[in-house]
């Protein structure tokens, strides 16, 4: 078993603090993400898991502490640089509702490629490939409203993978799914990530989902706890 403590981390968070008004959502969180590894961020609801993920992805900036990606401090980048980083290097899967309802599934998956300047035909061809890899190419021409929750999540995973990102951020990706569909999404996500040596930050409170990770970090009351058993 790998504990992921060897080698240089691709990404790390150190003593990250973040508060929303009176709520101290993060109160000193640390996390190292190693290349090609899956880290599970666990903890009770409201403990600050999503906030940690948002800080690491540069969606929000921490009040204090540092988040570095490949040695670069995210807080030194401006908004458009961070947007570009998210667009080009990261992929995202959320619990639900992330697909644009008007676009067909294949168009949804092609969207990041189109934004990166790829033409429509090649982008959609690549998107179709990705959908096939996630075993949902049969719903390519349907709109998100017309597919099942599990299919929709797999389309979302396809979208997060289509740009071959270095890091995939998944916030409760199976939260709205039943066990079977949840397992399926996790298996495909982790397989695809391993295939491209992408790292995954997997926020979940379900141990069975966390079991797909290489190592775990527990957040409680905004603090990460050292993985005692791993030591």
């Amino acid at each position: 078993m790998t504990t992921g403590t060897t080698g240089e981390p691709i990404m790390s968070a150190r003593a990250v603090r973040k508060s929303f008004g009176p709520t101290q959502a993060l109160d000193g969180a640390d996390l190292d993400l190693h290349p090609g590894q899956v880290v599970a961020v666990m903890g009770p609801s409201g403990s600050g898991k999503s906030t940690l993920l948002h800080c690491m992805a540069g969606i929000i900036l921490p009040d204090d502490g540092s988040v570095t990606y490949q040695g670069r401090e995210l807080s030194t980048m401006d908004d458009s640089a961070r947007s570009a980083l998210r667009r080009n290097e990261f992929g995202f899967v959320f619990q639900f509702g992330q697909l644009v309802p008007e676009l067909t599934c294949v168009e949804n998956v092609a969207l990041p490629l189109r934004l990166a300047g790829m033409g429509r035909k090649p982008a959609e061809a690549k998107a179709t490939d990705q959908l096939a890899r996630l075993e949902v190419d049969d719903v390519a021409e349907k709109r998100p409203g017309d597919v099942s929750g599990g299919q929709g999540q797999r389309v979302a995973v396809a979208r997060s993978l289509v740009t071959t990102p270095k890091v995939i951020f998944a916030d409760e990706p199976t939260g709205a799914l039943d066990s079977l569909n949840g397992e399926r999404v996790m298996r495909l996500l982790v397989d695809a990530a391993k295939a491209t040596s992408a790292s995954v930050v997997l926020v979940t409170h379900e141990p069975r989902v966390a079991a797909y990770s290489d190592y775990e970090v527990v957040v409680r009351d905004g603090k990460t706890r050292a993985a005692v058993g791993a030591a």
Partner: peptide, 10 residues
């Protein structure tokens, strides 16, 4: 215990 359990579950 969680660490041990998770190891087993992995």
């Amino acid at each position: 215990q969680r660490a041990a359990h998770l190891r087993a579950m992995r």
